[in-house]
Design a protein around this nucleic acid. Structure first.
Lengths: 324, 324
DNA sequence: TTGTATGCGTTATCAG
DNA sequence: CTGATAACGCATACAA
């Protein structure tokens, strides 16, 4: 399998140079020759060897995508959107997973570099000057998602702070007794790890509390919030999973409260619609997000400057409908 | 960035050949020279250019993994298990998605071949002699998962037929009135598409019905099965999602029945435990599956013969516990 | 023990 | 319009 341009040239009785020119539709080749080459190429199913091309050009028509994990539905869908968008631009995406581990993130980025990816879409775990210096040293276009780095890197993602404030505002409009915030601690790595999105979501809730003057407490432990909840309370959780976990534990441990707590999460999981007691959520469009990041990347790949892009969010009521 | 072995040689004042021997720990190199090279390599962060290596060797230390979709939690987790297992063997996995489309499957496999993957793990959408000829023409080791092809290709996956029969048997032990089978049609491509796993699951239910003499019907439409259900019926669905869909629609459209139907699905979704009215399911171990496929691949990569491998399944009761 | 030459497949440059 | 030649970075066979 896999014939070479050399072989193709031999078949056509010409040289590699001419084969190349014919295949690339260069003007300086006789029409008859080009057709002969094209016909032979099709006949023998010639595919240029990408590795050879990459060696000489340094380009692989591949974009590396660094994510935490595919088991989170949202990132699985976001990746699909990237893949399809990149596809249309003639790029193949190569996803790698950091599993939230800083060391592993470096490792997988190096693997992508070994394979000479042309650009990087990155949901960073690391942060700080050393990490940024590392990224700069790669000298390829990089777009950062969700967890912002410094201004030196193009960023795209939702305005989590505003989204979170609006989520709290939505809950407020339902006249709850209090509005708590629930976000489990991020593990011992929290200090070294990039928790930008987590932090600004909490800030958004604080913003809303200050502005609307509701009461409510921030909790990091499910057991603790469960023991403190009272009928009519609302809980904004930093992810749908956390909200669902509270719902499930309420039903088990404090069933009298189960129907009396207003729950809201983040991410708009598709599976929410199968739950009998539905929760509110905040949803982002993967499509829009992917397009934003890819357009930034297109700018950088073309040598242009690019600007940060914001991805819109939607407040989804428990019945699944948008809330204006 | 990225120094070459040539440059490294110049720095050490020796030739590329010796650098290569030193880096590879070949015996025929003076100890002192090796240490000088190793020190310089570390100092300047020399990384061999994988593209160059791939061009000359044809090997990229990369394994292609062809899946349908990452949005299905099960395959996302299966992929993670592959990735980690391959990692330990010194391989990087490159996942691509066919989205169940036969043409796209060919396309993404070609993209992997362009990148000179050393082997393929494949969850096939296509089937038939033409497709198998295509796969043979790639002349790299291939392991097939879940949807069996001919004996020419090593297969690993659960015994879906037996698992399905045991699922029906589990339901039978709960003394339902009837045990129906629900599996929506697979779209118009069903004829050309490889539906092996779907087919054998249905066969398993048929086996059980014949053996245990229960009554029950096969349905392909949710609306139809909803209209036919009666209290005490059980439904075995070909996926947890379908079972959950029936549950949700029952609650909405026939609430009097909602608690009186025994539901069971396939795949053991993690999120099932958050549902108040839980369903039974059949679970497979990603870990075990990944190890099976990777050991087959290791055989093939080493030039050995390999045998099909079966992945065990577990019947999970609604309370989340194993059923013996 | 080390250096040199050749080739992997492609592209770009320079002659013709 | 076309052919020959030199890279790209590495590995290997052969020479010293």
């Amino acid at each position: 399998m896999g014939m070479t341009s050399q072989e193709l040239a031999a078949i056509c009785g010409i040289s590699r140079g001419t084969v190349d020119r014919a295949l690339k539709n260069r003007p300086e080749v006789k029409k008859e020759t080009r057709e002969r080459v094209l016909a032979a190429a099709r006949k023998y199913g010639y595919r240029p060897n990408l590795i050879g091309q990459t060696l000489v050009s340094g380009k692989s028509r591949t974009i590396g995508v660094v994510l935490f994990d595919f088991t989170h539905e949202f990132f699985a869908e976001l990746y699909s959107a990237f893949e399809k968008g990149a596809d249309q631009k003639g790029y193949v995406t190569f996803p790698v997973l950091s599993y939230h581990e800083p060391d592993r993130e470096i490792e997988v980025i190096n693997r992508l570099m070994d394979r000479r990816v042309d650009a990087l879409i990155l949901l960073p775990v690391n942060q700080g000057p050393d990490f940024e210096a590392f990224l700069h040293s790669l000298s390829i276009p990089i777009v950062v998602m969700a967890n912002r780095l410094s201004d030196a890197f193009a960023f795209s993602g939702p305005d989590d702070r505003r989204a979170s404030a609006e989520a709290a505002q939505y809950l407020y409009a339902q006249h709850p007794r209090r509005i708590h915030y629930f976000s489990p601690p991020l593990g011992k790595q929290a200090k070294t790890t990039n928790c930008y999105a987590q932090i600004v979501r909490r800030d958004g809730w604080l913003d809303a509390r200050q502005k609307l003057h509701f009461s409510g407490t921030e909790y990091q432990s499910a057991s603790e919030i469960l023991s403190q909840l009272e009928p009519g309370d609302a809980v904004l959780a930093s992810s749908d999973f956390y909200a669902l976990e509270i719902q499930a534990r309420l039903r088990r441990e404090r069933p009298e409260l189960a129907e009396k707590i207003l729950l809201m999460g983040f991410d708009g999981l598709n599976i929410l619609r199968f739950f009998p007691q539905r929760i509110a959520t905040v949803r982002f469009s993967h499509q829009e997000w992917a397009e934003a990041a890819l357009s930034q990347l297109a700018d950088l790949l073309a040598g242009r400057k690019t600007a940060d892009q914001s991805v819109s969010h939607q407040i989804i009521a428990p019945n699944g409908e948008f809330y204006a």
